[in-house]
Structure formats: structure tokens, C-alpha cells
């Protein structure tokens, strides 16, 4: 999974930290490094920007994977610099922000906006791949998810805005149903396109979603 982020405008971050003078900075060595939004280079650049604003950066760290439970240990290892700070700016996706937030009582400030869960298509090019709906239909749609790949998330075929294989909302974007159609045709499975998909269950797992991985079964 790749959590795709973009940096918030610095003015927005500045506003969020208006009342804080001593700041600790956390980046992420996984997704935010890959998207060049919260890796070592970006954390250092943020440190410079904060310095120019007259803020004191008490320390910084790029946690290998900010969303996992190691984060609490990393914060503990850097306890002094963290305790010196009035807030932590997190340059990771919202998962990283919330992980830090659960490990520390003081204010946690996100420096990134989390856009989507995506796949890398080409260098630096990401596309949204899954809406995490809880009821996967990829087996009937040639492995292409209409819920995310179609602007409207339709299930029963293209709308009237389909345009030479592109979407009317953005000519740079493919029409999901043209892709699904071509792929199913190639596979000799066009009958799947004729299948009626009833209204989706949007309460497969009511929000907020939570699950417990079952202990080993079959023993």
C-alpha cells in the first residue's frame, strides 16, 4: 500500500503552529519519502523554513515507517528533544500523524494532505487504486475497480460522458468502463459486462471501521 500525499502550503502550516515556538519534526521513510513529501530532504527543508520563521527546531527524525508501532519507540528514544518541543510537525500521511498522536499528548500538526491509496504507474506518477469499500468486485470487472477508476463510481457501465476512451471530467483520465470493456473483450468475458450489479452495500462495516485479526484457526 502506498499512501499518496502532497505538502500543505507552508502558510497553512505556519497558521497551525502560530502559537508554538519550539517544534519537533518527524518524517516518514516509506510512502512520504517515495512521494518526496516527507523524506530526509523535505524534513531538512522544513527545518530551514521554520528557522527562517524564527522557530526553534528541537530535533528531527525520519521514522522508517511512521504508521507502525515502532513510532512510539522512536519518539521515546528522542525523548529529550521531543519533550523540549511544544508540538510535533508530522511530515507523513494521516496514518503517521495519528500514530504519533497516539504516542504523545502534546499537539500534533500535519504538514501533508493525504490524497489517496495508490499505485505507482511510472516514476513519480501515482493513481488511486482502491477505495477500501469492503466488498471487492475486481473479479467481475477485469481487475479494474470502477468504484475508484470511474469518476462517479458507477457499477453498471459507462455514463453518457464517456468520450473516446476518456472521461468527460478530465480528458487526461481514462474512462474506467472503456478499460474494463477492452480487457473483458480480450479475455472473452464480455458477458460479465452484461451482468447487473445491484446497489452496493455501503455499510459492509459501518464507520469507524475496526477489526480484530483472528487468532490462528484450525488448531
Amino acid at each position: 500500500m502506498k499512501s499518496i500525499t502532497k505538502q500543505k502550503p507552508f502558510d497553512e502550516v505556519k497558521q497551525l503552529i502560530e502559537t508554538f515556538n519550539r517544534i519537533y519534526l518527524i518524517g516518514c521513510g516509506t510512502c512520504a519519502t517515495m512521494t518526496k513529501t516527507g523524506g530526509i530532504d523535505e524534513v531538512q527543508a522544513m527545518k530551514e523554513l521554520l528557522h527562517d520563521e524564527g522557530k526553534l527546531v528541537t530535533g528531527w527524525v525520519v521514522i522508517p515507517t511512521a504508521c507502525d508501532e515502532m513510532t512510539a519507540e522512536m519518539i521515546a528514544e528522542n525523548e529529550k528533544a521531543v519533550q523540549d518541543a511544544q508540538c510535533i510537525i508530522v511530515m507523513a500521511c494521516a496514518l503517521g500523524v495519528q500514530r504519533v498522536n497516539s504516542s504523545w499528548q502534546k499537539p500534533v500538526i500535519p504538514a501533508l494532505d493525504t490524497l489517496f491509496v495508490g499505485l505507482e504507474e511510472g516514476p513519480g506518477e501515482f493513481f488511486e487504486a482502491c477505495d477500501q469499500c469492503g466488498q471487492c468486485i475486481l473479479g467481475e470487472t477485469a481487475g479494474i475497480c470502477p468504484l475508484t477508476a470511474c469518476h462517479k463510481g458507477l457499477l453498471n457501465g459507462p455514463c453518457g460522458g464517456t468520450n473516446n476512451g476518456k472521461c468527460e471530467v478530465d480528458p487526461e483520465k481514462d474512462c474506467a468502463f472503456t478499460l474494463i470493456y477492452e480487457r473483458l473483450k480480450e479475455q472473452g468475458r464480455l458477458d460479465l459486462m452484461r451482468k447487473y450489479h445491484p446497489p452496493k452495500n455501503y455499510q459492509v462495516m459501518p464507520r469507524p471501521r475496526k477489526t480484530m485479526v483472528l487468532p490462528e484457526r484450525g488448531k
Binding site: N156, G157, N164, F177, T178, Y181, L190, R194, Y196
Partner: peptide, 17 residues
């Protein structure tokens, strides 16, 4: 519509509905 066939498949689904 271009391509036409997906549009016609949906047309037929609407008739079935």
C-alpha cells in the same frame, strides 16, 4: 458513443431494468 458497444450493453441493461 465511442466506443459504442459498452453503451449498447448498458442500453440493454436499462431495458432489462
Amino acid at each position: 458513443a465511442v466506443p459504442l458497444e459498452p453503451q449498447l450493453i448498458k442500453f440493454e441493461k436499462k431495458i432489462e431494468a
